[in-house]
Amino acid sequence: MEEELLEEILASYRGDRGELVPILQEVQDNLGYLPEKSMVDIAKFIGVPESHVYSVASFYAQFRLLPLGRKRIAVCRGTACHIRGAPQILNRIEKTIGLKEGETSDDLEYTLETVACFGCCALAPCIRVNMDVVGEMTSEKVDELFPPVIEGVKNDQ
């Protein structure tokens, strides 16, 4: 399935060098991340070494080389968020869902990441869950959004 999808995506490009970033973006939009195989195929398609594709994919913060959780939580690290308590919000989320920044849970439920700023500074501190920005975050809101998992009940074997 992945391969068909990749073929379909590549069919709408010419294979120019300047298309590398847009192709990686579209593949990631569809697959959630950049599987190794897709990068190999993209390298062939554009006619550049695999190492080039990898070097570009690993340079930009947007690209992920591992699968993501169903709920992607991004905590804004912008300046306004920082001085209005983003570090505490991040801390709280880390504790609640038991993940550190950059990690994905084994059951692929959550991915926790931070982003430089999504420009909602007037509503600081804010986070984004998948596509939705939630502003004026508080610890209470964290608990509402991510009900604490009770130890032992998390994985029902």
Binding site: C76, G78, T79, A80, A116, C117, G119, C120, C121, A122
Partner: peptide, 8 residues
Amino acid sequence: DEGDPGAF
């Protein structure tokens, strides 16, 4: 690109 965190 507006990369400056704290600007929108």
